[in-house]
């Protein structure tokens, strides 16, 4: 039982929290701009790489580098929106999806051009885990989950207490009605990108802290992040959080040897878990667990 908690449950929660941050962004962007943002994973990678020089060269702690990664990702997202998405806003939204597919490859190529194709680590060496009556937790895992909770609470307050947040939800629920009430669509879109990129940048740094930084971390997270957003119901940020946790836990627990000593599913096929859950969800209940929208 302790083995299950230490090696499957806790890593699952950490991974799930990271997925949740990405899924919230995907869900918000889908809700407001009505397209699946394929470059979201690579925006996470961008956050991880923005933090890299501050951690490795300047010796900052990853937590202090978080604001840098967030601001960098927000600036990049706003620039990308201005250059590549805004001119296509009047087109059918599927054209935006094609454009974002191109943007994903452009971001990755730019990262590879600047930082090279090799993988990097924020900090080398082994950190002793903390032990609570048999349960072992790495310190960074506590911080990652704690910061994720903090970010989600902040997002909740933003969406429910501020005028911009309420306008954002209104635009997601009914674009025409929102426009009639005088909501400035472009301003809300900019806020959506800023929020999505902020969370994506954090998620990238967290992955870098947990494992290592490669140019593929974001692309590899794209499928589970979309699965999480669909599971939670597109356009429902709270659903995305639940979806992220479910996908993260399912991916880790799928390797647990339930019967005998063999893992339930070969860990190399982890990404198939997210895919299977997503397909099952689309068949059984396309609106997601939290009754999001079906577009």
């Amino acid at each position: 039982m302790l083995e299950f908690v230490n090696f499957y449950l806790i890593p699952g929660l950490v991974l799930g929290s990271i997925y949740a941050l990405g899924a919230i962004g995907v869900s918000l962007i889908f809700g407001i701009l009505r397209f699946a943002h394929f470059a979201h994973g690579d925006m996470m990678t961008l956050g991880a790489y923005f933090a890299l020089p501050f951690i490795v060269t300047l010796g900052f702690s990853p937590y202090l580098a978080l604001p840098v990664a967030m601001l960098g990702a927000v600036a990049a997202a706003l620039l990308i929106d201005r250059l590549f998405y805004k001119p296509l806003r009047a087109q059918p939204s599927i054209i935006l999806l094609v454009a974002s597919f191109g943007v994903a490859l452009m971001i990755r190529a730019a990262i590879q051009f600047v930082w090279g194709p090799h993988s990097h680590v924020y900090a080398s060496g082994f950190q002793m885990p903390l032990v609570f009556s048999g349960i072992r937790v790495a310190e960074r895992h506590i911080y990652i989950v704690g910061l994720c909770i903090l970010l989600v609470v902040a997002l909740h307050l933003f969406l429910t207490r501020t005028k911009t947040g309420k306008a954002m939800r209104a635009l997601s629920d009914d674009p025409d009605l929102a426009r009639i009430t005088g909501i400035n669509t472009e301003r809300i879109i900019a806020w959506t990108w800023a929020l999505g990129a902020m969370l994506a940048g954090c998620a990238g740094v967290f992955v870098g802290m947990d494992t290592h930084v490669t140019t593929l971390i974001g692309w590899n997270m794209l499928l589970p992040v979309f699965a999480a957003a669909i599971l939670g119901g597109i356009g429902k940020p709270y659903g995305a959080i639940a979806g992220g946790l479910v996908i993260g836990l399912a991916e880790e627990v799928s390797a647990y040897p339930v019967f005998g000593n063999e893992p339930l599913l070969d860990p190399t096929y982890k990404s198939a878990v997210a895919f299977a859950i997503m397909v099952a969800m689309l068949l059984w209940r396309p609106s997601g667990l939290f009754r999001g929208r079906v577009y």
Binding site: F275, L282, Y295
Partner: peptide
């Protein structure tokens, strides 16, 4: 058969998934 009755965004995501699984 699984995804075509839904909006094409879902198909796009599903095709990424199937390509990834085939690669594995």
């Amino acid at each position: 058969w699984l995804t075509l009755s839904l909006r094409s965004d879902y198909l796009a995501i599903a095709t990424i998934g199937i390509a990834e699984i085939l690669r594995l």
